[in-house]
Structure formats: structure tokens, C-alpha cells
């Protein structure tokens, strides 16, 4: 139950005053309540828990983290040879 998943908003709808959205989770779509994230827009990504959108995913922050990790990768290359042989 406690698994939060990122999904993309494909449609926003109103259910008797409650903001809802159709959210696409990699091909599976579900109706999600957006009462806690009422300004989320079509095309944006949200973390969804138990049918509720709880947080908007910030693309700039995601790209920044990936850039940081890439720069670390090059540092690790300089640290020495060897390395992870298997990564599931």
C-alpha cells in the first residue's frame, strides 16, 4: 500500500468539486485525486500514493541531480580501476 509511484497527468477533471486527474503510469492509467495538488497541469509528473497526488516532480531538480551524478561518475573513474561488475 505504501508504494508511491510517479505518473504523468494526461487529463484533469472535476468530480463534484474535487479536482481529479487521469494519470498515466507507464501505460496504465488511473483516476487520481488532486485535492492536495490542485494546480497540477496536463503533462506534469506527480508522485501518487493510494490514489492521491502528493508531490509534483520538479524537472529542473531531476536534471540537476543527474548532472551531479554524472560528474561524480567521472571523479570515480579517476579514483581507480575496477568497479561494479554487476548491477541488477
Amino acid at each position: 500500500m505504501c508504494l508511491g509511484l510517479p505518473g504523468r497527468v494526461v487529463e484533469v477533471v472535476d468530480d463534484r468539486g474535487t479536482p481529479m486527474a487521469v494519470v498515466d503510469f507507464g501505460g496504465v492509467t488511473k483516476q487520481i485525486c488532486c485535492a492536495y495538488l490542485p494546480d497540477i497541469a496536463v503533462g506534469e509528473y506527480a508522485i501518487v500514493h493510494a490514489g492521491f497526488a502528493l508531490a509534483r516532480l520538479d524537472e529542473a531538480a531531476a536534471l540537476e541531480t543527474l548532472a551531479l551524478l554524472r560528474s561524480l561518475g567521472s571523479v570515480a573513474d579517476e579514483v581507480g580501476p575496477g568497479g561494479a561488475q554487476a548491477m541488477a
Partner: peptide, 11 residues
């Protein structure tokens, strides 16, 4: 990237 991070932590 995961390999890089594993190496970094082990080092």
C-alpha cells in the same frame, strides 16, 4: 551511473 556511485562509496 550506479557503477560510478558504488565505486565512489567503496573508495
Amino acid at each position: 551511473l550506479a557503477r560510478g556511485l558504488v565505486e565512489e562509496i567503496l573508495a
